[in-house]
Design a protein around this nucleic acid. Structure first.
Lengths: 150, 150
DNA sequence: AAGTTTTAAGAGTATTTTATCTTAATTTAA
DNA sequence: TTAAATTAAGATAAAATACTCTTAAAACTT
């Protein structure tokens, strides 16, 4: 799998938040139910995004989480980097530590290009863009399609 | 990680075999030592490649494994598909089962392109090509660089 | 101030991946 | 025909990932 489950859940909930921009804090419980993600697991994932500075949280009634900046300024890359780290974008396809221009493996050049393709796609896509597309075309971000864009 | 450890080891040993084309069966013990991979683990990985038809094995003294066809006809994609499966090349970036043209997620189009980039790179690269490059430019396929192309 | 709602944090469990160990089966060679 | 070399296969162990549960801390409401 390219991205960990935690990362995928992080992306889905980030899209959720981007589609609720201006609605203040959204409770994790609500998101976990609408996105069909284990509440406690999602809590931990969002804690990572919060400590990475991408979200801010608030305790108590009317608490929850929200994006710290506009979703149009948050790229998918930022979410992925905060949860799965950037190893995917620097690592060697053959798993050799320190593989790079100076000390490459036979696959380095080709893989570096491919890897950059993934990175550029993620960097060039922001949350609001996807949320708008999802809403406009009524696309799903949950398995059962139970999620409704608002 | 893009590829599992097993897959990476499978690729490294496939490159080894491609650089030994025509030398008959190569013992797994020898490969495990030269590539610094756990012998038993490598054995299981090569069993997968054997049952996938990419390699053939022979027991007893002078036994080992060898490629069933010329390494120039074996793409990296075939090795990856035999060990990690093709899920990576069909799966949804948001982890939604059945995501595709008919029932896409908001990221589907962009990810499908990126995914194809990975696939094309792997399909367009064969074992001998890499082994030759590795030998010519003296590139490493082990962590410590202890491996020597012959 | 008390009770309720909510996130935070840590411990615990389950599953998958990675790796090891042991025994069996096969093949060669003396 | 016996011994040694080698892959095959199954059981076990360790580590990483994916979740779950419990308790604590904070903030709002009355």
């Amino acid at each position: 799998m390219l991205l960990s489950k935690a990362c995928v859940y992080g992306l889905r909930s980030s899209l959720f938040l981007a589609s609720h921009e201006g609605d203040g804090y959204i409770s994790i419980r609500e998101m976990s139910e609408k996105l069909d993600i284990s509440f406690h697991f999602l809590t931990k994932i969002l804690q990572q995004l919060t400590s990475a500075g991408l979200m801010e949280s608030h305790k108590g009634p009317k608490g929850g989480v929200r994006l710290t900046k506009s979703g149009s300024e948050v790229s998918l890359f930022e979410i992925v980097a905060a949860i799965d780290g950037t190893e995917l974008f620097t690592e060697c396809a053959l798993g050799l530590p320190g593989c790079g221009v100076k000390k490459p493996c036979p696959l380095h050049d080709k893989w570096a290009d491919t890897r950059d393709g993934i990175r550029l796609m993620l960097e060039g896509t922001n949350l609001v863009e996807l949320a708008k597309k999802g809403k406009k075309e009524n696309l799903r971000i949950t398995e059962d399609g139970g999620f409704e864009w608002i």
